[in-house]
Design a protein around this nucleic acid. Structure first.
Lengths: 108, 108
DNA sequence: TTCACCTGTAATAAAGTTATTACAGGTAAG
DNA sequence: CTTACCTGTAATAACTTTATTACAGGTGAA
C-alpha cells in the first residue's frame, strides 16, 4: 500500500457523514432510499458518499428483488480492521518513493 | 471521541503530503526551512500542513537557538497507534448522537 | 552594508469536495 | 391513469482545502 492508496482509504472514512452511513448498515443492509431517510440526506448526495465508500472497500452494494417484484439496491458494511501508526505511514511513503525511483522496465 | 474529532484526526494523516512530512521527522527533528527543502514544498504551504498535524497531535514544534545564536523552529513526530474498525467508527457516531440528544443541562 | 540564512503571516488563486436541483425511467397498487 | 414507491445520473452551486505570491522582520558573517 503506497501513500496515495492509504490516503484514499483514510479519506473515505475521515468524514462524519460517511461514518454515519457506515454505522447504519453495520448490523443490517439497507436500500438506498431507506438509508437516505435514516441519515437525512438527499439520494444523489448519498450515492456520492456510497461510491467513495465502495471504492475504498468499506461497503458493497447488490441488487435484490422484493417478493412483489420491486428492484432495490441494498448496501452493507464490510468488516475491516487496521492499525495506524508512524510505521504504517512511513512504509506507505517508502512504497511511493520506491515506485517513483524505479527504472522504466521494473515490474510492479 | 466523537465523529467530528475522529474525522479531524483521520483527515490530518489522510494526505500523502502530510505523510511525507511526518516520515521525514520520525527519526530526527528538523527545522521548518530544512524540512521544506526535503519535501520540496514552499514554507507557507508547509506551515499550513504542520499546523494541521500539530492540532491533531501528530507533531510538536519548539524553538531552539543554534550555538551561534540563530533561532530555529524544530518539529518532530509524536508517537501514536490506533486501531480503526467498524466498532471504532460506530462508537464515534454514537458519541455524537448522544451529545446531540442530550438535555440542555446535561454535562460533558 | 550586503549576503545568506532563518521565522512568520496576509492575500489570493487554483483545485477538489460536498451538496442541491432537476431530470429520466422503472414497478405495483388503487 | 394516477399515486406512491424505487433506481440512477447530469449539471451546477457552495464550500473547503491546497498551493502560490508577496510581504515584514530577525541573526551572523564577509
Amino acid at each position: 500500500m503506497n501513500a496515495e492508496q492509504l490516503s484514499t482509504w483514510l479519506s473515505a472514512i475521515a468524514s462524519p457523514q460517511r461514518m454515519r452511513i457506515l454505522s447504519q448498515i453495520v448490523s443490517e443492509p439497507l436500500h438506498v432510499s431507506e438509508l437516505a431517510r435514516r441519515v437525512q440526506m438527499s439520494r444523489p448526495l448519498l450515492y456520492m458518499h456510497l461510491t467513495k465508500l465502495e471504492e475504498a472497500g468499506f461497503v458493497a452494494g447488490h441488487h435484490e428483488l422484493t417478493p412483489d417484484g420491486k428492484a432495490l439496491k441494498l448496501f452493507h458494511a464490510l468488516p475491516f480492521s487496521s492499525t495506524i501508526d508512524l510505521a504504517t505511514l512511513s512504509a506507505a511513503v517508502a512504497a511511493t518513493d520506491a515506485h517513483n525511483t524505479r527504472q522504466p522496465d521494473e515490474s510492479e
